[in-house]
Simulated assay, not measured.
Amino acid sequence: MLLQGLKPRIFNWLNKFSACWVAELPVVLWSLRTTPSQATGYTPFFMVYGSEAVLPMDLDYGAPRIRAYDKQGDIASHQDAMDQLDEARDIALLRSAKYQQALRWYHGRWVRDQAFNVGDLVLHLMQSDKDCHKLSPP
């Protein structure tokens, strides 16, 4: 997933700057951590910290949850959030199990096993890896 996020961001610079991916890595990691997972329905940030991340855009434009923040009730709301986090983790565990079952069903229904014997003809694509590295397009 990291490579899928990095390639479009640095594709034009691959030939000129081979180490520019280091500057783009934090942005890609942030986007992965704040994107809801298809398996659990929650963001990885929420699963770890118990609340959604405050994005810079929320601070700039005064999102409703930023305006509704109350420093006095922070301790009580933190305890409620921890209780909700445990419940959310249980829900995420159930969703993840359901997602894995659906993947297993799909694989069992549509993916067929291939058995190869010695002497069978197979198509083998030979690509030149001259001047290529792991971020080069296939």
Results as ranks from 00 to 15, higher is better:
M1L: 05
L2M: 13
L2P: 00
Q4K: 06
Q4S: 13
G5S: 10
L6N: 01
L6S: 03
K7H: 08
P8Y: 09
P8K: 08
I10E: 11
I10L: 12
F11D: 14
F11P: 00
N12R: 15
W13I: 10
W13L: 14
L14E: 03
L14G: 02
L14A: 07
L14H: 05
N15W: 02
N15T: 07
F17W: 08
S18P: 01
A19H: 11
A19T: 15
C20F: 05
C20M: 07
V22E: 03
V22Q: 11
A23P: 00
P26N: 10
P26T: 15
V28T: 09
L29W: 01
W30H: 11
S31F: 07
T34N: 09
T34Q: 05
T34C: 12
T34A: 06
T35R: 08
T35G: 02
P36T: 13
S37D: 03
Q38D: 12
A39Q: 04
G41R: 01
P44D: 04
F46R: 03
M47Q: 10
V48G: 00
V48P: 00
Y49M: 08
S51P: 00
S51D: 01
S51H: 09
S51M: 03
E52G: 06
E52N: 14
E52K: 14
E52M: 05
A53T: 00
V54P: 00
V54R: 03
L55N: 04
L55S: 02
P56T: 07
P56E: 06
M57S: 14
M57C: 06
M57K: 11
M57W: 03
L59A: 03
Y61G: 02
Y61V: 14
Y61P: 01
G62A: 12
A63F: 12
R65A: 04
R67C: 09
R67Q: 09
A68K: 02
K71F: 09
Q72L: 11
Q72N: 05
G73F: 00
S77E: 04
S77Y: 03
Q79G: 01
Q79W: 00
Q79C: 04
D80G: 13
D83Y: 13
Q84A: 13
L85K: 11
L85A: 09
D86T: 08
A88W: 07
A88G: 06
D90L: 12
S96E: 12
Y99N: 12
A102F: 03
L103Q: 15
L103M: 15
R104S: 10
W105Q: 15
W105H: 10
H107L: 07
G108D: 15
W110N: 07
W110P: 00
V111Y: 09
V111R: 08
Q114H: 10
A115T: 15
A115M: 10
F116P: 00
N117E: 10
N117T: 15
V118L: 14
G119W: 01
G119L: 06
V122E: 02
L123K: 13
L123D: 11
H124T: 04
L125V: 05
L125D: 00
Q127R: 14
Q127I: 13
S128M: 02
S128T: 15
S128E: 05
S128G: 08
D129V: 15
D129L: 07
C132M: 12
C132D: 02
C132F: 07
H133D: 14
P138T: 12
P138A: 13
